[in-house]
């Protein structure tokens, strides 16, 4: 279910992302203006949520592939929690390293 929710969120983000990058068609200055705004602290925080979603979706996706290959089927519930834990710990690290970007 979380795979679906993160997936839907990421699809939405995908189209937003493409629209944002397409501002380059209006010229280098417009692009730079838009992107400077999008690298403000509040957006860095939002970016962290995006990274968490990507990380979880990818890890759980790997888990699905493992189950499809017949690996770890009996431990599949534990693998799910492992995905959440890895996502959480990695995000903790990433947030730590991103702090200067938020506080500047």
């Amino acid at each position: 279910m979380l795979q679906r929710i993160t997936g839907l969120g990421l699809v939405f983000y995908l189209f937003v992302h493409i629209m944002v990058i397409s501002t380059a068609l209006a010229g280098a200055e417009t692009f730079d203006d838009v992107l400077t705004v999008l690298q403000l602290p509040v957006f860095v925080v939002l970016d962290l949520f995006l990274a968490a979603a990507v990380l979880y979706h990818g890890l759980n996706g790997l888990r699905v592939i493992l189950i499809d290959l017949g690996v770890g089927v009996t431990r599949q519930a534990e693998l799910f929690w492992a995905c959440l834990v890895v996502t959480a710990t990695t995000m903790a690290f990433v947030t730590y390293f991103s702090f200067p970007l938020i506080t500047r």
Binding site: A24, F31, D32, T36, A51, V54, G58, F97, P100, L101
Partner: peptide, 30 residues
């Protein structure tokens, strides 16, 4: 998994030190 990984690395991490040192304005520019 690999392609998005590379993409996010390029967009968010490579050059991060330059931004933090003030040698570069932003991570992503035209």
């Amino acid at each position: 998994i690999f392609l998005v990984g590379v993409h996010m690395w390029m967009g968010h991490f490579s050059g991060l030190q330059e931004v933090l040192d003030g040698r570069r304005e932003e991570l992503v520019l035209y």
